[in-house]
Design a protein around this nucleic acid. Structure first.
Length: 219
DNA sequence: CCGCTGATATTCT
DNA sequence: GAATATCAGCGGG
């Protein structure tokens, strides 16, 4: 499968998100190679999207999103987890696609992905290896060191190859997961896309603000 | 099976 | 100080 060049990512993130379904992300490290067929993604539209990290403008964390398309934007979430995006649109804008889940494909990849996941937690079943954005980064061994990695380099540490294409009727869309800041109107941004009936798609969890006032130390 | 809760650190107010 | 693009463990039905 061909590795799209940079211009392929220089499009609206929702359009790129659709084309990323069925694409294969290949991760190469000294440990070995894990290839992942993407089954679930979410589009974010930069400064005009209240769900985006770039909604309030540039910061140290989101700097990569403002750069060239075709690079990874990796951030840390809730202290323990990492999530990975692919930067879209022209430099100077900040749209991106969050990679939420995939199916491990190819020889040997599942064993390596399982080993990595078991270091950090449990693996209930094969389909859970990269089911969820934080699990995906563990399976692929992606962290902040990979922020800015170029996915357009064939044979590189992170390579993204276009898939055979999926029929529009096989793609489902709905509200993004866990996103607040839309005023509870997740339906305004039905930009979570997934492959219908694919078992590796993550479970939906609505954005639910946590109970306030919980302290670790009595005061 | 389901729902709730704690962990944990970076970011922004 | 509060919120957060999450996950695993726990208890109940």
């Amino acid at each position: 499968m061909p590795v799209p060049e940079r211009a392929w990512y220089d499009r609206p993130s929702l359009e790129v998100a659709h084309d990323l379904l069925g694409a294969v992300l290949t991760r190469r490290t000294s440990q070995g190679t894990v290839a992942l067929r993407l089954t679930e993604v979410e589009a974010y539209d930069g400064e005009r999207d209240p769900g985006s990290h770039a909604f309030r403008g540039p910061t140290a964390r989101n700097a990569t999103m403002y750069g060239e398309p075709g690079h990874l934007y990796v951030y840390r979430h809730m202290g323990l987890h990492h999530c990975v995006n692919v930067v879209c649109g022209p430099a100077g804008t900040a749209s991106a696609v969050l990679l939420r889940a995939g199916e491990v494909v190819g020889p040997g990849g599942a064993a390596l992905a399982r080993r990595r996941r078991l270091e950090r937690g449990v693996v209930r079943s094969e389909r859970d290896l990269a089911r969820g954005p934080a699990r995906l980064t563990v399976a692929l061994a992606l962290d902040l060191a990979d922020d800015g990695a170029d996915v357009t380099v064939p044979g590189g540490p992170v390579e993204l190859a276009a898939g055979p294409g999926v029929a529009p009727s096989d793609v489902e869309a709905g509200p993004r997961v866990g996103v607040s800041g839309e005023g509870g109107r997740g339906d305004l941004y039905p930009w979570r896309l997934w492959l219908r009936d694919d078992p590796t798609v993550s479970e939906y969890r609505a954005a639910a603000p946590r109970r306030r006032g919980v302290r670790k130390q009595a005061g």
